[in-house]
Design a protein around this nucleic acid. Sequence first.
RNA 1: GGAGAGGUGGCAGAGUGGUCGAAUGCACUCGCUUGGAAAGCGAGCAGGCGCGCAAGCGCCUCGGGAGUUCGAAUCUCCCCCUCUCCGCCA
Length: 430
Amino acid sequence: MLDIATVRREPDRVRRSSDRRGIDPAFVDEILRLDAEYRSALAALERAQAEKNRLSSEIGRAEDRSAAAAELRPRLDALAKTIAGAQATVATLSPDEAGSPLRALLEESPNLLDASVPDGHDESANQLVRSWGTPREFTFTPRPHWEIGEALGILDFERASRLSGSRFSVLRGAGARLSRALAQYFLDRAVQRGYVEVAPPYLVSRHTMWSTGQLTKFSDAMFRDADAGLFMIPTAEVPLTALHAGEILDASSFPRKYAAYSACFRKEAGAAGKDTRGLMRQHQFEKVELVWLALPESSFEALEALINDAAALLEELGLAYRVIALCAGDTGFNAAKTYDLEVWVPSAGTYREISSCSNCTDFQARRAEIRLRREPTSKPELVHTLNGSGLAVGRTLLAILEHGQQADGSVVIPEALHPYTGFSRISPPG
RNA sequence: GGAGAGGUGGCAGAGUGGUCGAAUGCACUCGCUUGGAAAGCGAGCAGGCGCGCAAGCGCCUCGGGAGUUCGAAUCUCCCCCUCUCCGCCA
């Protein structure tokens, strides 16, 4: 959610950011107009309330309260009418009132972009930041992971679709083991890097989902149980970021770094026809998510650290990757700046997203009311939140299968995982 | 799912219609005291919003919402949550 105070103080900054995202900045003027209207209505209401409070306490102080009440009644009745009217006006204008036009505009506006975000409308304008490793040269035509996995008997999409429909998978034997090894490995490495491991709920309330900015009119691709009022998390970013919602945290505990393994659930309705085969895009997938609560002045340094934490995992696994800075038009609603981490996928002959790391600045913290206090006597201020995958389990598994495939159909497992898998190669049955 | 108890400031815990945004204690901040500290003493110390250059002034908030009343933390209704016991269950 945008800060009304920022719109007032720096409307040009808001206009520029919106324009760069491809959003008509006209709404800024609308916000300013509604806000001016709101504040004058609020001032009128507060004047009437102050008058009423004065009269009421006068009655409370009087010798003969009922006599005083009787005497002041006409003025109080008139004030009550004024107040009721003013309240109704304020309610329709207030930025704090759910459903008011001003509130709606503030909630629908995406986060302000950082100045370092490159211009551009779509992913073609994204910028390469750096790359690591070289894609493996094959002496044979590399097969896609679903063929490799099915031949090895470790991936089963046919039975998955009988169980649940399309975009589900069944992992079996060494495949299931490899998946578990990855999750365990990612978590262990995160803890070694100072993250606190968290096992969060996979179902969260509407309010929690709303508080992290997932419930906008632009994105409702989530599975949910309307009866219970619960949503299945599309990412552990939601419970991790909202973990300290409503709290005022001591600045000395910053930065706070959390890591959680979870299943994630997405309808992916907008992605029909894209990545229909394999593990790339599933309704249910697993991921280790990394979340930082950072001091405002150091959140962009934190973003660099976060993307490096995620990238280090790929280096340890020997998988070639590149880091991409998303352009303005490709940067998500919550984010001020986003880096994507893309891993080389041999069968596709290109890099594919395996992690997305974002600095959401104070945008999520404003809704979730996550604050910090610098000194015992200082005022609370909003924290900055960051999130990124470290990493997506299915996509990493996919990359390992394709990268490690051999001419004889077996797959060589990266050494870093051997302590977790207990095997160094997956060989065809028989 | 059934029965009961309860939700007040960072914490504990008073407050059952009127100078209560809230006693008291602890924690915390500043000052005095001290060689230094502790203790002691004094002052301060919730959050949000609006007006104001500022000092400051005002409004709102005692789980959330609606109501009664000139006036609600206190009374009424609805909802949410927590705890205890019972049932069920991995």
